[in-house]
Design a binder for these strands. Structure first.
Lengths: 201, 201
DNA sequence: TGACAAAACTAATCTGATTAGTTATTATAT
DNA sequence: ATATAATAACTAATCAGATTAGTTTTGTCA
């Protein structure tokens, strides 16, 4: 394979760095090529299009964040595991704003082509299964957590919440809200006071 | 004012419709002009740039959603008010996918230039104050709800969650989680089991 | 009626993605 | 060692769409 200087990984790393500097929105093949010391058209040997690159960047981010979370969960369990996972994701998003935006904007099904959940989802699933939660409730719990965490990170990114300590505090406050919710779901727990009927009136 | 055919509102309405059809990302001045039966450069008489248009569209969306929520809350209080507000927002996002994306992507501080909270935030504040929640907790609660709701809507939009009834179920499940959390915050309530120390270890 | 201002138009410019066609490099098989 | 084939880079060209410049049209109001 000639000209082995560059490969997909190096390109994604450069794209990630660039996105973190100037945001995904402004990520351009022109600047990326410049950063890699090649001409823009050369990128097409590695990438289908700018849009695909953004998708690839999102996948790259999920892999990275997933790996960090997996690592952080080694030997931890229960509520503490949940806190850790949330905390690590939060920090990942903070440290990699551009990549995180790609993850949020170019989100897709959290399943592989085969239909199995992706790695991170699998990890979180196991976290749920370790508790005494019904299978169908676990699906809800995962969606709720993911919504909350990505939503919070996004709003922080966009300057809706101030980038100060109170925001961090709010975030972990919310995590405790959700943990409290989970506890009430556990079989044998007090039970969550769900309403029976419609949700719209 | 000559050629009074067009004004900012009509342009925003057209932009909203277009964004809902083809997504904000693909929203272009070219297509917008076509839809309005004018030439693209003419739009600059009403709009600073494509990017500003997207910002304006986001503001337009918040106004609209805020108005719907305010209307839905007339004469309702307590938990039911929270459920209503969440439900209405969820439906607005569902019905206006493009505008909602603009709202999510082009989010800004939820305060006006003057420093007062915007209308919707004010409404939700009052909802909190009606409960026996400390002022500083109310800030957290608002951030948590907003994160959850926007996050959920975004992930649904992006096809991460299936567009079926189970997603809707998950959403309202999460709302109950959060309402349960609020209850525990109320002075005189059981209290939320918060951890004291660090969040990262 | 005539002058002004707003809003639209056409023509032109610029930027950046993408395509076409060519050249250089290197792994591999002879 | 060397020829071959595949890969990756290059240059030149095209295209699309935003934006700017300069002009014309049209409605308002003195």
């Amino acid at each position: 394979m000639p000209r082995g200087n560059l490969d997909k990984t190096k390109i994604l790393e450069a794209a990630a760095a660039l996105a973190n500097e100037i945001s995904v929105k402004k990520l351009s093949l022109k600047q990326l090529a410049q950063k890699l010391n090649i001409q823009p058209p050369s990128l097409y040997n590695h990438v289908q299009s700018l849009d695909h690159l953004r998708l690839d960047l999102a996948a790259y981010g999920w892999d990275q964040a997933g790996a960090r979370i997996a690592e952080a969960l080694i030997g931890v369990s229960g509520d503490e595991a949940i806190r850790r996972a949330c905390s690590v994701f939060y920090e990942y998003a903070e440290e990699n704003p551009g990549v995180f935006e790609a993850m949020a904007y170019y989100n897709r099904e959290n399943r592989t082509a085969g239909g199995e959940p992706d790695r991170l989802t699998g990890i979180l699933y196991r976290l749920c299964r370790a508790r005494d939660i019904a299978e169908t409730d676990a699906v809800h719990v995962l969606r709720i957590f993911r919504s909350y965490i990505e939503g919070f990170a996004l709003l922080t990114r966009h300057g809706v919440f101030p980038a100060d300590e109170t925001a961090r505090e709010s975030f972990f406050y919310g995590v405790e809200f959700l943990i409290a919710g989970i506890r009430q779901l556990e079989r044998g727990g007090a039970g969550l006071p769900m309403r029976g009927g419609t949700n719209d009136g």
